[in-house]
Each structure stands twice: as structure tokens, then as C-alpha cells.
Amino acid sequence: MWTAFAGTVKIERMTQEKSDKQLSIDKSEVTVLVHKARTGNRFAFNQLIHIFQNDVFKMVFYRTRSHMDAEDLTQDIFLQAFKNLSKLKSIEKFKSWLFSIAINRIRDFYRKKKFRDMFSTELKTEEEMNVREKHTHHPDVLDDIYKKDFWRKVESILKKLSAMEKEVFTLRFMDNLNINEISGVLGKSESTIKTHLYRALGKFKKESSLLQQFKEVLQ
């Protein structure tokens, strides 16, 4: 499976130019929609939801690994964005702004969760947690096993990184944001982002054995 994915990369590279053009069109479209939404156009904001819901949802899921929490948090993030859209200084940076809301909301979620767990005597096993999750189990059992194993491996790799390195790495290679966008999301300079990314990649590269196992599991 890993090899199959790798095989498609070359084809994707050939279409990279086309994607970039598409991306630039999307960006201008987004800017127009943001401008309209700021004037109270709900239809325009719904269009923005349509464009970014999947990305925001996945972003939350990568950090919570919970379908239900990802659904709830995504709803909260868009509501917060809707209420505070007038506060957005630069409409060209809507995506970074939206993702920064998401990052803050996730941090807030973990703070509350930590507080709740302090007073909760109930210990939940992994299986119990999975039962709570709707649609966690894919119809394909093998795919479900791959899925769990994949996230376990990713978790073990990311554990080696510091909080900031982990965040920058995830934003760059899982959320597919560029350096400039990450800089906007985290409110740090581009050189700081590059430094963290550089360190994160150094650690990631050293985990080649884990990656090898990971490839085997997918094959």
C-alpha cells in the first residue's frame, strides 16, 4: 500500500503545476467569499464552510483521534469564526486565521479534558473508548487494523518531537500548510517555523526503523 502510494507521487508531481494554478484560483475565490461573508452574507460563509470543513475536521481529528470530538470541535471552530469574522485583519489570511482558531480550540479542549480527568475516577480502556466512538469501525476489518496500527506508529514517531516541533511538523506534512501559512497560524516568524521544522525532520528521519515497520504493515 505504501509502495502504491509512492508510485502515484510522480504523477502528482506532473500535475503539481496544474494544482498550483487551481490553488491560486481557489485563494482568490476564498478572498471574495471572505469579503462577502464579512458584510453579513451567510451564503458566502456557508461556501467557506464547504471549502474548509473537511480540512478543519481532519486537522482536529489528527490531534484528538476522536470522531465525535472532531465533529463537535469543528462545529465550534466555524461558529467562532462566524462570530469573529469582522476581527480578521487581513482577508487573504483567512485559512491561517481559521486554523489558528482551530489550534486554540483544540488546546482549550485538552485543558478542559485534563481538568475533567483530574476529577474523574472512571478509568476507560481503549476498547471502551472505541465503543463510544461512532463509525470508528470501518466495514473492512483489515483496513481497520491498518488504521489503528498506522495511528499507533504515527503517535510513536510524534512522541519523539517537542510540542512545537510536533505542531509545525503536523501542520506542514499532515495538514499540508506551507511555511507562510504555518507562520500565520502559530504567530511565529517564518525562520522560527523553519528551525522547528528542520529539527522535527531530523528526528523523524532517525525513526527510519519505525518507518520500515510501518511500510511492512501497510504492504
Binding site: 505504501w2 502510494f5 470543513q53 473537511n54 481532519k58 465533529e71 488504521k147 499532515m174
Partner: peptide, 23 residues
């Protein structure tokens, strides 16, 4: 490898099912 990691993360995560409702 990095690109594949991103693609697999996308593949092994669910899709949003709840429609966002504005106030």
C-alpha cells in the same frame, strides 16, 4: 515518505458527517 505520511493520515481518518449550522 513525508507526502505518503500525509496521504495515509488523510486516508485513515473519518470524514465529517455533521452539517455545520450557523446561529
Amino acid at each position: 515518505e513525508l507526502s505518503t505520511l500525509g496521504k495515509l493520515a488523510h486516508h485513515f481518518s473519518p470524514k465529517p458527517e455533521t452539517q455545520i449550522t450557523l446561529p
